[in-house]
Amino acid sequence: EVHFESHGEEQAMRVVKMLKKRNLTVEVKVENNKWIITAK
């Protein structure tokens, strides 16, 4: 499981795309203006 924190939507979306290319399940949450990305 991979956790990634991002402060910007643009950066977060880039990471999500990259993770999805690896056929991982990606969950995105926004907490306290931080984008929290979890990949399994």
Score class of each variant (00 low, 15 high):
18 M>F: 08
9 E>F: 14
6 S>T: 14
25 T>K: 10
15 V>A: 03
17 K>G: 12
21 K>A: 13
6 S>M: 15
11 Q>D: 13
15 V>M: 10
5 E>H: 09
4 F>K: 04
31 E>A: 06
38 T>L: 05
30 V>T: 05
4 F>N: 04
9 E>D: 03
39 A>P: 01
23 N>Q: 07
11 Q>T: 08
5 E>K: 05
9 E>Q: 09
30 V>Y: 14
2 V>C: 15
19 L>M: 03
17 K>M: 10
1 E>P: 09
27 E>A: 06
34 K>A: 04
18 M>E: 13
5 E>A: 06
8 G>N: 15
7 H>Q: 10
9 E>N: 04
12 A>H: 03
13 M>P: 01
33 N>W: 03
10 E>S: 09
10 E>G: 05
10 E>L: 13
18 M>P: 02
35 W>I: 07
2 V>E: 07
34 K>W: 05
16 V>Y: 03
25 T>V: 12
14 R>G: 04
33 N>D: 12
23 N>W: 14
40 K>M: 11
37 I>W: 00
20 K>S: 06
36 I>E: 02
29 K>M: 08
40 K>S: 11
38 T>E: 03
38 T>W: 03
17 K>I: 15
7 H>F: 13
5 E>P: 02
39 A>L: 12
7 H>A: 11
30 V>A: 02
28 V>L: 06
35 W>R: 00
31 E>P: 00
8 G>S: 15
22 R>W: 15
22 R>P: 02
17 K>F: 14
24 L>I: 06
40 K>R: 11
22 R>A: 13
1 E>K: 09
23 N>F: 15
37 I>P: 01
21 K>D: 14
5 E>W: 08
12 A>N: 01
32 N>P: 02
35 W>K: 00
28 V>N: 00
24 L>H: 04
37 I>V: 10
31 E>H: 07
6 S>H: 05
19 L>V: 02
19 L>I: 01
30 V>P: 01
31 E>D: 06
26 V>S: 00
22 R>K: 11
2 V>P: 02
10 E>Y: 07
39 A>G: 07
11 Q>V: 08
3 H>D: 03
1 E>H: 13
3 H>A: 07
22 R>D: 07
12 A>D: 01
17 K>P: 01
4 F>G: 02
16 V>I: 14
27 E>C: 12
29 K>T: 08
18 M>N: 10
22 R>I: 14
25 T>N: 10
36 I>G: 01
15 V>H: 03
15 V>S: 01
31 E>L: 08
1 E>Q: 08
31 E>W: 06
11 Q>S: 09
11 Q>L: 13
25 T>S: 10
30 V>N: 06
1 E>R: 10
18 M>L: 11
33 N>Y: 05
19 L>F: 04
26 V>G: 00
19 L>E: 04
21 K>E: 14
11 Q>M: 11
31 E>T: 05
17 K>V: 15
26 V>D: 00
4 F>A: 02
20 K>A: 08
8 G>E: 14
14 R>E: 08
15 V>Q: 02
28 V>S: 00
35 W>L: 07
2 V>T: 07
20 K>E: 15
15 V>W: 11
26 V>H: 00
32 N>K: 08
20 K>W: 08
34 K>G: 03
32 N>Y: 04
19 L>P: 05
22 R>F: 14
20 K>D: 07
1 E>G: 10
25 T>L: 12
1 E>T: 12
25 T>H: 14
16 V>F: 02
7 H>L: 11
24 L>F: 14
4 F>Q: 04
28 V>T: 02
19 L>T: 01
7 H>R: 09
37 I>Q: 00
17 K>C: 15
17 K>L: 13
12 A>C: 15
24 L>G: 01
40 K>F: 12
21 K>W: 13
21 K>P: 02
37 I>R: 00
2 V>A: 06
20 K>C: 13
22 R>G: 13
13 M>Q: 08
30 V>K: 10
5 E>L: 11
6 S>I: 15
8 G>D: 15
1 E>S: 10
39 A>N: 01
11 Q>R: 07
16 V>Q: 01
39 A>R: 01
10 E>M: 06
33 N>R: 02
36 I>P: 01
35 W>A: 00
12 A>S: 02
22 R>C: 15
32 N>M: 04
34 K>Y: 08
39 A>D: 00
10 E>T: 07
40 K>V: 09
24 L>P: 01
35 W>F: 07
14 R>T: 05
25 T>A: 09
39 A>Q: 01
32 N>L: 04
17 K>D: 15
14 R>Q: 09
27 E>Q: 08
10 E>P: 03
32 N>I: 03
7 H>C: 15
7 H>G: 07
33 N>E: 08
13 M>C: 14
27 E>F: 11
38 T>K: 05
4 F>I: 10
26 V>R: 00
32 N>A: 06
23 N>S: 06
15 V>T: 06
12 A>R: 03
27 E>L: 10
2 V>F: 14
28 V>Q: 00
28 V>C: 07
6 S>V: 15
16 V>L: 04
36 I>T: 04
20 K>Q: 13
1 E>N: 10
21 K>T: 10
35 W>Q: 01
2 V>S: 06
33 N>T: 02
35 W>T: 01
1 E>Y: 13
6 S>Q: 06
26 V>N: 00
3 H>R: 14
16 V>P: 02
4 F>L: 06
16 V>R: 02
31 E>Y: 06
4 F>C: 15
39 A>K: 00
27 E>P: 00
21 K>L: 09
36 I>H: 05
15 V>N: 03
5 E>Q: 06
33 N>Q: 05
2 V>H: 15
14 R>N: 10
13 M>F: 04
33 N>C: 11
24 L>S: 01
1 E>A: 11
40 K>T: 11
15 V>F: 08
28 V>W: 08
33 N>M: 06
14 R>K: 09
8 G>I: 14
27 E>I: 11
18 M>S: 09
32 N>T: 02
7 H>E: 13
25 T>I: 14
37 I>N: 00
28 V>K: 00
27 E>K: 06
29 K>N: 05
2 V>Q: 07
19 L>K: 01
16 V>S: 03
39 A>I: 14
23 N>D: 08
20 K>V: 11
40 K>G: 05
19 L>H: 02
10 E>V: 09
39 A>E: 02
24 L>M: 12
16 V>A: 05
18 M>Q: 09
17 K>W: 14
11 Q>I: 10
32 N>W: 04
33 N>V: 02
30 V>W: 13
16 V>H: 01
8 G>H: 13
13 M>L: 07
36 I>A: 02
38 T>M: 08
3 H>T: 13
13 M>K: 10
36 I>M: 04
23 N>E: 07
8 G>V: 14
35 W>H: 01
39 A>W: 13
32 N>G: 12
6 S>C: 15
9 E>P: 11
3 H>M: 12
30 V>I: 12
25 T>E: 12
1 E>L: 12
38 T>P: 00
36 I>L: 07
20 K>R: 09
31 E>I: 14
21 K>C: 15
27 E>M: 10
40 K>I: 12
18 M>T: 05
13 M>A: 07
20 K>P: 06
6 S>N: 04
27 E>T: 13
25 T>W: 11
9 E>H: 11
32 N>H: 06
8 G>Y: 15
9 E>S: 06
35 W>S: 00
4 F>Y: 12
37 I>T: 01
31 E>N: 06
38 T>F: 05
23 N>P: 00
35 W>N: 00
40 K>P: 03
30 V>L: 11
18 M>Y: 12
3 H>I: 14
37 I>H: 00
30 V>R: 09
12 A>T: 04
5 E>T: 11
19 L>Y: 02
8 G>M: 13
32 N>E: 08
35 W>D: 01
38 T>A: 04
22 R>E: 06
17 K>S: 11
16 V>E: 04
10 E>H: 07
3 H>Y: 13
13 M>R: 11
39 A>C: 11
30 V>Q: 09
21 K>H: 08
5 E>C: 14
37 I>K: 00
28 V>G: 00
2 V>L: 14
21 K>I: 09
23 N>V: 05
7 H>N: 10
25 T>Y: 11
14 R>F: 05
14 R>S: 07
14 R>M: 08
1 E>F: 13
34 K>F: 10
11 Q>H: 12
19 L>A: 03
22 R>T: 08
13 M>E: 06
7 H>S: 11
34 K>S: 05
33 N>L: 05
8 G>L: 14
6 S>P: 03
12 A>Y: 05
